[in-house]
């Protein structure tokens, strides 16, 4: 039997099966011991931010061969180290995104009313001071609320995206008959300011009565996640002074959403790669992006029984690209 205990540098146990080993107390003071009489061998090794303690019991091959034992120990250490680094990097990315979004929210509120503006003897007084600030700066107050609305949408997408990417695919999806136009307009609203800054017009070419009489089954959370990430990419990669066109068509049980936009060129050989985690488009090398968004879109749409395909256009820097989202 091989027993192991992996700890981090805070002495927290990350993985172990040592509780099944009755003789662990005998190695309390020294973990690098060979006890041939009882057919036991214990070894302890620290590497960077993890430590591995290994005990083999009744394993003749490992007891008789130092080379084999060391190989086994190295395999455990390498694996522990890789797992630890993997989760550490994911937690780091998670906290980095949340800290950045929270920073934007805090600074935006700061721009409307500073910490001192909130200071008062009681909540009523504090509220009055803020009301005065708002009435004196109505436009700025509205801009702050729109900004906060966008940031809340980003947090929503980030948390859901993190779950979809890293917490397995066992997510419970709840389908409800939905008006696709209303859903898209809801998701689009927080991005309007960024499209406006790029002078990009977004037109949802779906008639109200058509959307209302042709509802489709959607899990709102997952659809929201996919489209938040889609618009986030669209804002970055559309050509300034251009137009994004969104159309919808339903035939029986199947339906399709087409999004046409003038955006950065996509080469034919990278269409599939675009949806892989960590891949950023060849022509998007100098723009912000960690390549996570598109892979989240793919997974969130799959949970909605939907698929996204890309029909790239031709051009030098920008092309007329069509993204088709359809029910599988």
């Amino acid at each position: 039997m091989i027993y192991f205990e992996v700890k981090n540098n805070l002495n927290e146990v990350l993985a172990t099966n040592m509780h099944g080993f009755s003789g662990r107390e005998q190695f309390k003071s020294d973990k690098n011991v060979t006890d041939r009489k009882n057919k036991l061998k214990s070894s302890y090794l620290e590497k960077d931010n993890v430590s591995v303690w290994l005990v083999v019991e009744d394993e003749t091959d490992l007891l008789n061969s130092n080379r084999l034992f060391n190989k086994t120990m190295n395999a455990y250490v390498t694996m522990a180290h890789s797992f630890s680094n993997y989760y550490h990097s994911k937690i780091q990315a998670h906290s980095h995104t949340l800290r950045s979004i929270q920073g934007k929210m805090k600074q935006k509120i700061d721009g409307l009313a500073s910490k001192a503006d909130f200071q008062a003897q009681n909540y009523g007084e504090s509220k009055e001071k803020i009301k005065e600030k708002i009435s004196a700066n109505l436009d700025k107050a509205a801009d702050t609320i729109c900004h906060l609305n966008k940031r809340v949408a980003e947090i929503d997408a980030h948390i859901e995206g993190f779950d979809v990417l890293y917490m397995g695919t066992e997510k419970t999806v709840i389908f409800q008959q939905s008006n696709i136009k209303k859903v898209i307009l809801n998701i689009l609203a927080p991005f309007l300011v960024e499209f406006k800054n790029k002078r990009v017009d977004v037109e949802v070419e779906i008639r109200d009565d058509y959307a209302d009489s042709n509802r489709v089954p959607l899990d709102y959370k997952m659809f929201n996640l996919a489209f938040c990430n889609f618009f986030d990419n669209a804002v970055k990669y559309t050509k300034p002074n251009s137009r994004v066109l969104i159309r919808f068509q339903k035939n029986g049980n199947s339906f399709q959403i087409d999004i046409t936009m003038e955006s950065l060129l996509i080469d034919n050989d990278e269409i599939e790669l675009l949806f892989e985690e960590g891949y950023s488009g060849k022509h998007a090398a100098n723009l912000a992006g960690d390549g996570i968004g598109m892979s989240v879109i793919k997974k969130a749409l799959a949970l909605n029984n939907m698929k996204l395909i890309c029909e790239p256009g031709e051009g030098e820097k920008y092309a007329n690209n069509i993204f088709k989202i359809y029910k599988i």
């Binding site: 800290r99 950045s100 920073g103 805090k106 600074q107 700061d110 721009g111 500073s114």
Partner: peptide, 8 residues
């Protein structure tokens, strides 16, 4: 400075 620092 962390990105979520206050303006002050």
């Amino acid at each position: 400075l962390p990105k979520n620092a206050d303006t002050y």
